[in-house]
Design a protein around this nucleic acid. Structure first.
Length: 614
RNA sequence: GGCUCCGUAGCUCAACUGGAUAGAGUACCUGACUACGAAUCAGGAGGUUGCAGGUUCGAACCCUGCCGGAGUCACCA
């Protein structure tokens, strides 16, 4: 099947036979030939010139002739400036299409026994999901699909940060200012309702802090602790944490609540459960709208204790050490990192503790030796540390850990900040793109006769395709800029553009009455646009492997765009149902059908569905 | 300040991991619907790849130094 490897081997063979050069066939670089030149694939000759002691033209001539004579696929070749361009024969490509069109699940890689876990989303239980979450969710979902296609057994998970001081803030705030309002009583989505009280807490705290700054105590603290270059403003900005921990009335109330929670206080736990459930219900609605789900959820509240045990064990076998105040640390200076705290002096856990526990629990339950964390790049350091600790603890899965680090999404106005109210809520954004799709479709009028539920499904489909493709087409590592005002495009390099190619294909098959004849078209002489499509189809498994290996869905995104683009061009350039000959028609119908199924398959890897009409 | 990442057309992104004249989309200008769906196709214009050196047959990519931006360096998560 892999003819590229065959070409590489033959080139290596020829070098050995004709020039006594022994080269590894893997090191023979084969590129797809650029559009401007004639040929399908290109052998780069430069690396062999010195060793073969031959000019590029002579070397190319000999290699090309060798390929012609020793493979049954090369039809001709040419040499341009050190590049050997070879063309594969018409029948070679026709064979490829015949095979691809009959293979079930084309593109799937052989099944492996490896189990992989993908973690994404990781929400807090005190606010709604926003644009940033959308990127993890889409990346995680897509990555899971890709890995499954690449043969892995995948479990999709999320970790919910359901405990800690932040959650207590919204709880306390609701108790104080909530008037017993519930999602049901107000008709507000649960995550938004809880989010309101979380924000409210910060506002009240800010008020309290301002008042304190103007009090005698505040003034004397400033005089006592200010540094030479401090202004009043800069001082109090820097002092904020300390104020919250040592002086704030609200602060001490919240901390008291956290302690009650840890002690299992009935009243606090009940409130905690109730409010968390409001948020989960809200988040579930958002996930549902996005068309994604999880196989299993983990909760920090259920894993942090295991984390503590791991830390204590590590202390026993001296992987970790205890400081004078009783806090427990790990020293990672031998691998170029810092010392990190794992357990506070009062015995409570920190962020790292929880992740240690979660990983162990997952491994025990699922046996996944590969775990992929889809988390923003602001946590690059955290994961470096986490993975090093696991190595030190000699966990069996420590070699299979990967942080799929993605860049933050910026707005044209700069960074999103929840405190400044510049976040884009996921729900709003989803509604917006669907609305956009709705208006676009209404204008075109192709679907307006359909029943309204069907229309709604189509609009959702198109809007989400636009949004998902827009985010997934960008390399995850890169920071990206998102302009919600322009919302998302539906033309050009977009999700709907690709969907449209699929819809056109469906439309053809609705119109063609006869059943598709058998794939007998050996004598058909293809035109360029048709061959280009087959070339792209042939590449599908390679692209999947690459995307899986590099943890990068954007590779799939650009692949499906290329395929759609080539199809649109062919559709425009040649007639299908009214083709010149029966042979051409048969060939094009088979080609169309295969392109359609690969478009569907590749979009599916991005979490995008294809409609039959739009 | 230390460490890490980033800088490509007006804008949003590519570039097969060191290969040919750096490609797409968008916006702008032109052309193509009585032809299988125009959410389409074709053409034009748009670049000193932040700057300066270096490495080699060849550099957006590797090395060095600047300039600009982001992240991180919490007993926050």
């Amino acid at each position: 099947m892999n003819f590229i490897a065959t070409i590489q081997e033959e080139v290596a063979n020829a070098l050995l036979i004709h020039f006594e050069c022994d080269v590894d066939s893997d090191s023979v670089l084969i590129n797809t030939t650029k559009q401007e030149f004639e040929g399908d694939y290109t052998v780069v000759l430069f690396p062999f010139l010195k060793r073969a002691k031959a000019s590029p033209d002579k070397l190319g001539q000999i290699l090309g002739t060798h390929l012609e004579e020793n493979t049954n696929m090369v039809s001709c070749f040419n040499i341009v400036k050190g590049f050997l361009n070879v063309s594969l024969s018409n029948s070679f490509w026709l064979d490829k299409l015949a095979v691809i069109s009959t293979v079930e699940n084309y593109g799937s890689l052989p099944q492996r026994s490896d189990k992989v876990l993908v973690e994404y989303s990781s929400p807090n239980t005190n606010k709604p999901l926003h644009l940033g979450h959308i990127r993890t969710i889409l990346l995680g979902w897509s990555m899971a699909q890709i890995l499954e296609k690449a043969g892995y057994q995948v479990t999709k998970t999320l970790i919910v940060n359901d405990r800690g001081i932040a959650i207590c803030k919204s709880m306390l705030s609701w108790l104080k200012f909530g008037d017993n309002k519930t999602p049901a009583s107000t008709g507000t989505k649960g995550d938004f309702l809880v989010g309101e009280y979380y924000v409210k807490f910060d506002q009240e705290l800010a008020k309290e802090y301002t008042a304190w700054q103007n009090s005698d105590e505040g003034a004397s603290t400033y005089e006592k602790l200010k540094k030479a270059d401090d202004t009043i403003e800069s001082f109090f900005k820097g002092f904020k944490n300390k104020y919250f921990n040592e002086h704030s009335a609200l602060g001490s109330e919240v901390k008291a609540m956290l302690i009650k929670w840890e002690q299992g206080d009935e009243e606090v736990k009940t409130l905690w459960k109730t409010m968390n459930q409001w948020v989960y219900d809200g988040h579930d609605v958002t996930y549902e709208k996005l068309g994604i789900h999880f196989d299993k959820a983990y909760y920090e509240s259920e894993t942090y204790l295991t984390g503590k045990e791991i830390v204590l064990e590590g202390l026993k076998d001296e992987t970790f050490y205890k400081a004078d105040d009783g806090s427990i640390w790990v020293d990672l200076e031998d691998v170029g990192l810092d010392k990190k705290i794992l357990l506070r002096s009062d015995g409570t856990s920190v962020y790292l503790t929880q992740d240690l526990g979660t990983a162990d629990i997952r491994y025990e339950e699922l046996g996944t030796e590969k775990m992929i964390y889809v988390v923003g790049d602001e946590q690059d350091y955290h994961f470096k540390v986490l993975f090093e600790i696991m190595k030190k603890l000699k966990r069996p899965y420590s070699k299979g850990l990967y942080h799929l680090s993605y860049g933050m999404i910026d707005l044209p106005t700069g960074k999103m900040k929840s405190r400044e109210g510049t976040v884009v809520d996921a729900d709003d954004l989803i509604e917006e793109v669907i609305q956009e799709a709705r208006e676009g479709a209404k204008e075109r009028g192709d679907v307006t006769q359909l029943p309204s539920e069907e229309q709604t499904a189509i609009f959702n489909n198109i809007g989400l395709a636009a949004l998902k493709f827009f985010i997934l087409k960008v390399n995850p590592k890169k920071r990206m800029i998102f302009n919600p005002a322009d919302s998302v495009d539906m033309q050009g390099q977009t999700g709907p553009y690709i969907q449209n190619a699929f819809v056109r294909i469906q439309s053809i098959f609705r119109k063609s009455e006869e059943a598709l004849p058998a794939a007998a078209f050996e004598d058909y002489q293809m035109v360029e646009v048709e061959k280009d499509l087959i070339k792209t189809l042939v590449n599908y498994p390679v692209v999947i492997e690459q995307a899986a290996l590099q943890y990068d869905p954007s590779i799939i995104a650009s692949y499906s765009y290329t395929l759609a683009k080539q199809y649109h061009k062919m559709y425009h350039d040649v007639r299908i149902l009214t083709a010149e000959t029966e042979l051409a028609k048969t060939f094009r119908l088979h080609l169309s059908k295969t392109v359609g199924s690969i478009l569907k398959s590749s979009l599916n890897l991005l979490g995008i569905n294809v409609p039959d009409r739009m």
